[in-house]
Every structure is written in C-alpha cells, then in structure tokens.
Amino acid sequence: MPLPFVGSEALAARKLNRYQLTTRYDMLHWDVYVPRGAVLKPVDKAVAAWLWSGRRAVVAGVSAAALHGAKWIRAEHPAELIHTSRHKTDGIILHSDSLADGEVCTVREIKVTTPARTAFDLGRRWGLPVAVERVDALLQACDLKLVEVRALIDSHPGVRGLVQLRNVLELADHGAESPQETRLRLLYTEAGMRPTQTQIKVFGKWGELVGRIDMGWPEWKVGVQYDGIQHWTDPRQRTKDIDQDAEYRELGWQIVRVGADLLRHRQRMIVARTRAALQAAGSPM
C-alpha cells in the first residue's frame, strides 16, 4: 500500500482485507492509515492530513513548504491545512485563512498554497528567527522571488502578522543552506554587520573554481564558513577544508570558521573575531 492511504478505499478496492488493515497498519487520522511503525516525514504528514480532509483542504504552512521541496522541517511538527471543517484532530493545525485567485497550485495532484503564498504564511507566524529560517528554506527549494511575496501584502491588508512578515522579507536570503547559516547571518545582522553576499564563489588565478564561501564581504575579502558535524568527523572533508583555507589565504581572503558550539554558546566571540577580520581588511565596521 502507498504511504499513507484511505482505509475504506483500500478495502473497497480489495487491495487488502480488514484483518490485514488492523494488524499491519496504524490509523493516523480517521480512516487514514500508514504502515505500522512507519517513520513519517513532513511530506507524509501533509498527504495524510489532506486525505483526512476528504481531499477538500488546501495544504498550507510547513506542510506546503515540504511539498514544494523545502528541507529542515522538523518531523514532529503537525501538518497544516487551510480548511473550513470545525472538526479538529490531533496532529493537524487548521487555518481558516482566505485564499485569493492564483494562490493555490497542484503538487502531486494535491491542492497546495503556491510558493509565494506559502512564504507569506510562514513569514507571519512562529516568531521572527524561525520564520526567517523557514522562508530561507523555501527560497532554497523554489524559484521564488521575494517581490512575489511582497505583492501579496497589498492583497491581504489587515491580516495578522504583516509587521513581522515585512521584517522577515528584509532579512530573508536565497543563499542559506541550513538553519544554522540563517541563524549566523541573523547574528551578524543584529550586530550591524550583515554579510553583503551569500554563497560566494571564489576563483583562482587561472579562473578555476576554488570553492564557495557560505557568507561574507567580498569587497573586503572576508568570508565566514559554518562547519557542520561532517567538517569535524570526516577526515577527507577536514583535509579538504584545510587545503581550501590555504588557497583562500593565497588569494587574499580571511576566513572565519564557526561551529555549532560557538553559534550556540559564544556568539560574542564570533562577532568579535569577524569584526577584527573586517577591520584588519580596512572595513569601517
């Protein structure tokens, strides 16, 4: 059976019998089943919620983002729907938002808010840092322009969360490749030194690509790399990082490396080190 599925439809089609349904599958929502012990991804939860609605709801919020291909959505987060039903169920957040023409598309034969409308909703909820992370992830996944999201503000005057949304759109960036990179960029922005570019391609003397820097200030040749766990545990990756840093230095770049511990516990040190590198390069920051 596909994951997930409507139990009554499977029985009617004789794809399985009631004994198989009750012994091999768990009911996630009313008449919506998944294999027993299955680990559900955000996309699976989105499909299950849509099936629970009788295929009438529009998938929205983080569930829409998941269907559009956004990463870094926590598996424990409930599915989100725009639906008029007054019947609630565990594991699904229901919104009663109105949708204008052109704000719904189809993904995998499922009605979903468009990328622009999805960003519009994500940017209004859950607090500024989380909202920026989610919009960043959607920008990474889709060919979405922030101007498309800004256009929706005029179409929905008075909707809750527009003040936060405007701030989110000012802070969002297509170049964040992880939530940690988003948080790091926000840290610099709060310190008054927002990176002027993300995913900076650095080329060697003969035009060859040396590498890509997560964020930085190309005008001062100061870059920042966020090192995930693989940069510390994978010997080949670590060797590559060391060799790459040497090439960057030969080309006049200063690289500030940041790991999870620094970002979590020593943010002042990150700012101080980066500011020192910028000032050494001649920046007034």
Rank of each mutant, 00 (worst) to 15 (best):
P4T: 06
F5N: 09
V6K: 12
G7H: 08
E9W: 11
A10E: 09
R14A: 14
Y19E: 14
Q20G: 13
L21P: 04
R24Q: 14
D26L: 10
L51T: 05
L51P: 01
S53E: 07
G61C: 01
V62D: 13
S63L: 07
A65E: 01
A66R: 04
A66H: 09
G69F: 03
A70H: 09
I73H: 05
A75T: 14
A75P: 12
E80I: 11
L81V: 09
H87I: 15
T89H: 09
D90K: 15
I93K: 14
E103K: 02
V112D: 01
T118S: 02
R124V: 04
R125Q: 15
L128M: 15
A131N: 06
Q140C: 11
K145M: 03
V149Y: 01
R150D: 07
L152T: 02
L152V: 00
R166E: 15
A176L: 06
A176G: 02
S178T: 13
Q180L: 09
T182A: 02
R185L: 04
L186G: 01
Y188G: 05
E190L: 12
P195E: 06
W206D: 15
G216K: 07
P218V: 08
W220V: 13
V222P: 04
G223D: 08
Q225G: 03
G228S: 11
T233C: 05
Q237R: 15
K240P: 00
I242D: 08
G259Y: 08
L263F: 08
R264F: 12
H265E: 15
H265G: 04
R266L: 04
I270H: 10
A272Y: 10
L278K: 02
S283D: 10
M285G: 01
